[in-house]
Design a protein around this nucleic acid. Sequence first.
DNA 1: ATTTATGCAAATCGTTTGCAAACCT
DNA 2: AGGTTTGCAAACGATTTGCATAAAT
Lengths: 145, 145
Amino acid sequence: MALDVHATATARLRADGQRYTTGRRALVTALASSERPLTIPQLLDTGKGLAQSSVYRNLAVLERAAVVHRIVTADDFARYELAEDLTEHHHHHLICARCGDVTDFTLPGALEDELDAAAAKVARRTGFSVDRHQLDLVGTCPTCR
Amino acid sequence: MALDVHATATARLRADGQRYTTGRRALVTALASSERPLTIPQLLDTGKGLAQSSVYRNLAVLERAAVVHRIVTADDFARYELAEDLTEHHHHHLICARCGDVTDFTLPGALEDELDAAAAKVARRTGFSVDRHQLDLVGTCPTCR
DNA sequence: ATTTATGCAAATCGTTTGCAAACCT
DNA sequence: AGGTTTGCAAACGATTTGCATAAAT
């Protein structure tokens, strides 16, 4: 499975005229082995020896190539996770308003379908072109309670 | 209705030991008469002569008193809207990935109920305490297409 | 050899904050 | 008066960028 992720990353970067360097591979590996989206400080801690500016730059490259996805919350730091089609499944986020931590959860497929149908209806009514829906549950995580 | 908003704002600020000053009232009025969440630059344009730092400070005060709600997207600027219980209805956001603009939309009540039920189930399973759910449709607005 | 990635340090820019004057009650 | 709010300017901090060196092809 990890091999497949790297193969796909290589392909997508190449399609964007970019190389899959050691640093970029390290970032993808760190994200692939994490159960939750990671901030840049967290990535700096795990992946030894990559400069902060390189992490920022490489994540930007990986995002443009659709290898990773950037998550922005009310927290001070942005978070990154692998693109959904590089992991098993479509999912959503539980966001702790206290510590900023983000974890994943999934919805029953039937409910996802209803959401997509509702989104399509809204798109039709408003002229908005909808690329994706994003559902967040905001609250307090077990650790902060 | 606008009177009710100001009355509620006064009460909530007082409960938090704060005054409903002219500047704060102007911000609430601007948000109440807008159909969409507004950024600080937008509020500075509409509002009369309130300094930027005062706008930031007052919005922070109004947010602590639960009079306004802060919306953070991938855009450079945060956006503010009146707290949901000061307006008519629970709603969600259409976010333009191109220009950052945010507009409102609503979901059928039945679907909202299903989302709440699913959220409750996730909360039970994860130990997370869920305060609210937030659904965004990300795409391209009619103007940017 | 030429192009691209890296590390370091400096710059950027939305947001926050210190402080003295203006405002309320 | 006593406390709060305001405006201005300076500070803050996550992210971006310029540039010289190192790595890759």
